[in-house]
Design a binder for these strands. Structure first.
Lengths: 203, 203
DNA sequence: GACTGCATGTAACGAGTTACATGATTGG
DNA sequence: CCAATCATGTAACTCGTTACATGCAGTC
């Protein structure tokens, strides 16, 4: 149910086509939410049906067309309602930790390679989130500049502050994942050092 | 696609009915994966169809029945295959961070209450995971004792070690979330201190 | 003329949520 | 006998993934 709010919040910065929204979501660093275009186009039409956004269609060639969506006053109100609403915390469902719990079903080499993949992935994530947080802090992102125009000056510190805090948090979270996986590598080391034999298969 | 492996791994410790699997998943601390019974029963039947588990049906009254499922050799092989397979990292989709990014749409009181709810939730999570990690480390969980019977003694350190590492990691992750939300409260404090006026609404 | 990027869609499927529904067993 | 717990299911729905599909615009 968060996709719609991600869309509304994006469109409040700048009216956009479904295509460019999809691009923002794809270059994952720039956004806390991911969605493929096959989800975005229908949702935009739904939002339009509810009067939360409005689409301005423009012809493109003979049959083609592109629609730039912008937020309506009702859409802005819906955004405020959502921000004020308590957030639901989804139940935990983490494939990497689930597997980490059962690494005894593989050998030490596999455990190592799982933790190394974890490190690689989250180092890359941390790099991206950090870069984005820095861009925001330096007021270097195009979207942020557009947002500033929509807000009175005394609110600019909050507009950027909340975003920087969120993206730094994501970067930190990724670094914590890296630290955890490094701990996993050390664990494998210890287990292997005290071995009676190589990770024996089940009897 | 991870639900099936959570089921297989549970059943390797102890043959169970769908009902007791659901209970394990519900008392979320004890498990890294959550699923309602409406998902579990059909999946067990699917797994049985694929020969990965086998169900022993037992009569319960005239019409009732209960089925205890246990892992087959093929199921154990599938579990090993999954553990050896590279893990996919899902794209980021975090409702709490999405909202944290847009707290300027609400007032400072709301921002505080959002961060406080975040703290409450993750403190509770940390408490549960820590408790479970401690129980595992002390070999005090019933399931772990059953698992030990299935593994040669030189593997026991690994069986418990991986699990403790995973649950401690989850506890640490929850504490990191708490720290992030506390940082959020400080941010609100700073923003409010430098205010020209209360969080002004949009022009 | 071919390739890349812009732009939009559908359809099938799998995963997860919520609600509804039924009945058995155990213990007070 | 009543409540709690054990036990199993279905149905409708939403959300998300993957693949297929089409066409325009600019440029090398």
């Amino acid at each position: 149910m968060s996709l719609r709010y991600a869309l509304l919040a994006l469109l409040d910065a700048e009216p956009m086509t479904g295509y460019s929204i999809a691009k923002h979501f794809d270059q994952s660093a720039a956004y806390v939410w991911h969605a493929p275009h096959s989800q975005i186009y229908p949702e935009l039409r739904r939002l339009e049906g509810e009067g939360l956004v409005e689409g301005a269609a423009e012809a493109r060639g003979d049959r083609g067309s592109k629609t730039t969506y912008f937020l309506t006053e009702a859409g802005r109100a819906e955004l405020r309602r959502w921000v004020a609403e308590p957030t639901q915390f989804p139940p935990v469902r983490d494939a990497a930790y689930l597997k980490a719990t059962y690494l005894e079903y593989g050998d030490y080499a596999n455990a190592r390679s799982q933790f190394r993949a974890h490190i690689r992935h989250h180092e890359e994530m941390a790099r991206r989130w950090d870069a984005h947080a820095a861009d925001l802090a330096n007021h270097e992102t195009a979207l942020l500049k557009l947002r500033f125009k929509e807000w009175p000056e005394e609110m600019h510190a909050a507009v950027v502050g909340y975003k920087v805090h969120a993206y730094r948090g994501l970067a930190q979270r990724a670094r914590d994942e890296v630290a955890w996986a490094r701990g996993g590598l050390e664990l494998v080391e210890r287990l292997e050092a005290t071995r009676y034999g190589q990770a024996s298969p089940r009897p």
